[in-house]
Computed example of a mutant assay.
Amino acid sequence: MHRAPARGTPVPRDDRESDMTDPAYLSTPQGRRIAYRRTEGDGPGVIFLGGFKSDMKGTKAVALEDWAKREGRAFLRFDYSGHGESDGEFTAGCIGDWAEDAEAAIEALTKGPQILVGSSMGGWISLLMTRRIPDRIAGLVTIAAAPDFTEDSMWAGFDEAQRTALEMVEQVALPSEYGEPYIITKKLIEDGRNHLLLRAPVPLPFPTRFLMGTADADVDLSVAHRLMDRATGPDIRLTLVKGADHRFSTPECLTLIEDMVMQVSAAIAER
């Protein structure tokens, strides 16, 4: 499970990179307007799914897009509603909403089976996609995947005063080293319970690579082991990087992410 200090531990946003291009926008079936950037190329396409309160300008998303352009691969990055350049308020959203955003982006903006690359909360969202639209998933790479973090980290880490505040005013503020506090809503916690994954087997019948840093202070190493235990499939591997933190954005880590996508691509081609 996540490390859960008394005050709770949100999953931080990625490092940020500059991006001068204007995004395009997609209106989802639910009426939300989400921003995206798409690179044309060969398939299977690669889709980056970002973390909690992160956005598509993060270091990993931009680096993976650069890799896709060099390799001539189709690539998509996008912001969930209430994140980055998408419309909506962050505090109005929840795991179910952001999963709907991801599904809409995959269905409307890509063709054929895709390789999902999910970072932190994006790992949870990408795993949900393997259940919702399995015919659109060719392979999976996760980076510090954080399935079930609303329950196993946030709720489990709340003290009695925080739980009371959540019931009475339906939100609680958690400190963040990234600036303003995170506002965690009752909706986020309750909706998260409708999407828990680690209480049952997680079928992954395609090439799958889990990446995890041993110095991650936000997602406990036991989460990766628990996910590995729950995952079922013919080609699933977990790679631990000694000393890597939750950002997983050093040049060496970025290269490893690219290597894992290429490894998954090669395994798909051999099937």
Rank of each mutant, 00 (worst) to 15 (best):
T39G: 04
E190Y: 15
A61P: 02
I125V: 12
P10F: 13
L256G: 01
D216H: 06
M260L: 07
N194L: 14
R193S: 05
L211K: 02
A6E: 14
Q171N: 10
R77G: 02
D97R: 14
A165N: 07
D259Y: 03
A161E: 15
E160Y: 13
L127G: 04
T164N: 13
D152L: 14
E177S: 09
M212D: 00
T185H: 03
V11S: 06
P12A: 09
M262V: 06
R193C: 02
P44N: 03
G31Y: 14
S249A: 14
R73Y: 12
D235V: 06
L240K: 01
L238R: 00
P10H: 11
E40G: 02
I257R: 10
T164E: 15
D15S: 12
M154G: 00
D87Q: 15
T185P: 00
A165G: 10
T150Q: 07
M1N: 07
E167N: 12
R136Y: 03
A215T: 14
R38T: 01
D235Y: 10
Q263D: 07
G96P: 01
E270Q: 14
R271P: 02
A99T: 08
E270T: 14
M121Q: 15
G122M: 03
E177T: 13
T28S: 02
R73I: 14
L109C: 03
N194I: 09
L204D: 04
Q162Y: 08
F48C: 00
T232Q: 13
V62Q: 06
M121Y: 11
V202F: 04
V219R: 01
R33F: 05
K57I: 09
Q171I: 11
D66E: 11
T130R: 07
A173I: 08
I137A: 00
M212H: 12
T185A: 00
Q162K: 08
G82L: 09
D19C: 11
D15Y: 15
I189W: 12
A63L: 05
I184R: 01
P207W: 07
D135T: 14
R136D: 00
L76M: 03
F206T: 07
E270Y: 11
G93V: 10
R230E: 05
L221Q: 15
T142F: 02
D101I: 02
Q114M: 05
Y25C: 03
